[in-house]
Design a protein around this nucleic acid. Structure first.
Length: 193
DNA sequence: AGTGAGATGGCCT
DNA sequence: GGCCATCTCACTA
């Protein structure tokens, strides 16, 4: 179980997104530390991506964290009631990020039942783990942060990584078709569609 | 199974 | 004022 260093997040965003699959998220928002494996993500490619909050270089209060260096969190409120957790990538000049769409709670139970589906969606996982704007702009490579990531050696074969269009970005024109949603094929905790 | 609408509020034009 | 990187429940059949 090794913590993921900040420079992991400096590479190109789609590559980092794929590499994040299988990594472990540590959540200490509610006192006790909880673990979850990342199983679904989406890449948002900054200034040139019409689906991204920083499209065209927008610099608004909400997206301030996206202009931090890679490895920080970006948490925002959507639809007035759900928070979404992102991981910022690259540098201050490239405000790009990766949305965490679904995680698998750890340790994995021996038998599966549907009541375990508390984190199969970006809003659901934040609600379940108590992730809010309070956790916006956090350093995800530091063990004393309320959120951080580690690698426990879990491997996801390339052949098991699905790449599909992103969810809920139909307004983005052609970019809505870009295959920037990545997930572990056949994983039970991936969000619907 | 599949569709549709409501909740609910910050953010942006 | 309109739009959301969503989720859930009610309704149809």
């Amino acid at each position: 179980m090794s913590i993921i260093p900040q420079d992991f997040y400096f590479e190109d965003t789609a590559s980092v997104a794929k590499s994040l699959l299988g990594k472990t998220l540590h959540i200490k928002t509610t006192g006790k530390e909880q673990l979850a494996r990342i199983v679904e993500v989406e890449a948002y490619l900054g200034i040139k991506d019409p689906a991204c909050h920083t499209f065209g270089g927008r610099q608004t209060p909400r997206v301030k964290s996206m202009y931090l260096s890679g490895g920080h969190s970006y948490v925002y409120l959507i639809y007035g009631m759900y928070n979404c957790l992102n991981i910022v990538t690259r540098t201050e000049e490239h405000p790009e990020a990766i949305l965490i769409r679904a995680v698998e709670p750890l340790p994995l139970a021996a038998t599966f039942n549907k009541s375990m589906l508390v984190s199969n969606g970006p809003g659901k996982l934040c609600r379940h783990y108590g992730i809010t704007k309070e956790h916006d702009g956090v350093a995800l490579w530091r063990k004393n942060s309320p959120l951080y990531l580690s690698d426990d050696g879990f491997k996801v074969p390339k052949s098991q990584i699905a790449a599909k269009p992103r969810v809920g970005v139909d307004y983005a024109g052609e970019a809505a078709q870009w295959p920037l949603r990545f997930y572990i094929a056949d994983n039970k905790f991936v969000s619907k569609k």
